[in-house]
Design a protein around this nucleic acid. Sequence first.
RNA 1: AGACUCGUGGUGUAAUGGUAAGCACAUCAGAUUUUGAUUCUGACAGUUAAGGUUCGAAUCCUUACGAGUCUACCA
Length: 506
Amino acid sequence: MNNFIIKEIYKDINNGLSKKKLKFRFAPEPNGVLHLGHVKAIYINFKLAKIFKCKINLRFDDTNPKNENLFYVRNIIDNIKWLGFKWDKLSFTSDYFLILYKWAKKLIIYNKAYIQYYNPKKNKYYNVYDIDKNLYYFNNMKLGKYDENLFVLRANISKELPNYHLKNPIIYRVIKKNHYKTLNNWCIYPTYDWAHGQSDYIEKISHSLCSIEFQNHKPLYNLFINYIYNKNFNSLKPKQIEFSKLNIIDTITSKRQFNYLIKKKIIKNYEDPRLSTINSFKKKGYKSISIINFIKKRGFTKRNYNISIKTLDIEVKKHFIKTAPILMVIFNPIKLIITNFKKQYVKWIKLNNKNKIPFTRYIYIEYDDFKLKHDHTFYRLSFKNYIRLKYSYIIKAYKIKKKKNIIKKIYCKIYKNIKSKKIKSTIQWVSSNFIKKIKILNYKYIFFKKNKIYNINSIKSIIGYTDNISIKNLKINKIYQFLRIGFFSFSKKNNFIKILYMKKKY
RNA sequence: AGACUCGUGGUGUAAUGGUAAGCACAUCAGAUUUUGAUUCUGACAGUUAAGGUUCGAAUCCUUACGAGUCUACCA
């Protein structure tokens, strides 16, 4: 693995940064569940810690109680574990609220921050210039004397930055809602800008990786670090490095959109197969290795790009082609009569030590696997082609029965002296005496485009058939290959979820 | 509109200023195959453009063009 982030770190090492001081962190806000987009940030941080054999923190960036809660904290912890990563220390930005507050007070004293208040009657904003007054108002904010949206603390750096919105950014605001962790201890909360870099500094993070939209905040990040930096404490200045995030065009990775779908009752929970949450992947039986490999292959750059969620299928398929047990399933059955096979007789075909399947005179095959007209690009069953029934006999058709111009039955014979090499096609079948109906959930990913939702009604139920012997031994949440059709996850009794279809070339 | 960032085959990436721009996926052929899958072999195809610096530029500089992020009491 080689990318610009690693190179930048090596550059820092060559410039004198001690390898022992390297430390990383993954810092999500607990305001939503983990999805595919997060995995990129998770992977790079944990991977770097492994490469450089250094520590990594999992820090919850919980500075806004309005939409954070313990459910999300647990979800994120569980899912990072499931992905196979371990952190050295679990921390919370809310652990640092007191020191952040003290630093903010110092900012006021050094004239680097000031109170701005809003007078609703006059519809006007006022800045406070006097230091003592600023301290007084800030203390009142902390005591909860003001309602939300009236008083804020702003940094005073207008001359130092060209970026308009970073000129005098808000660093503290009043939020009167209980925090899931600090409860009602606080009613003022630091903003991202006044919390993130500082937390990195406190935790002695050497490199703070984030996605590209934070690059505009970098000057502010560095400036605030300089404000609080104290070289007596063996501390180091953390460095922010930005990389482009995963832009997936045909699925949802926004918390706002997830919540909208739940509110509208389009989805019930985060396990819905139409989502690209880690929970959904888990439920579908994906292995974390497939997701990690997918992320690995994207690489890390600063370029912005759009990719399709379908490219994840390539990795998913790669894994399951090796591991998924095979099941013979028919979607559109047509009846076959093997006229030279004994009536009433059941031949048990041994697949392995555990499993066997029944073969009988009457079986079903897929409707598309038979063609009446001869065509030499068609390898499957016809009056001319010999084909093999998987695990079983070589047959050829010789007669059909039609009803209202639709083929209802195909008469075939077993041929025992045909050489295997001549057989171009092998197809799946199910004995009619042992047939079992199954339900398959077919879904498409939901996504938003220009405020329009696509694939809302994208969960469809399909009926399929297999034999009632094989289905008894299936395990829930395990992936099975439906021979020549695709990969399906066994969700509950007689129910499957489609994962992906095989390529059809014919 | 400004500020910041980024432009390498169809897609995602690689190349201390130094070999003939490498790899993977996709696509298309051929071989193998009790899955028209897989596997194997091969083909296809690229440095946004123009100038400059240099013995030598994907890489450094300038301009143009294109894309993204931001201009929140979200992170």
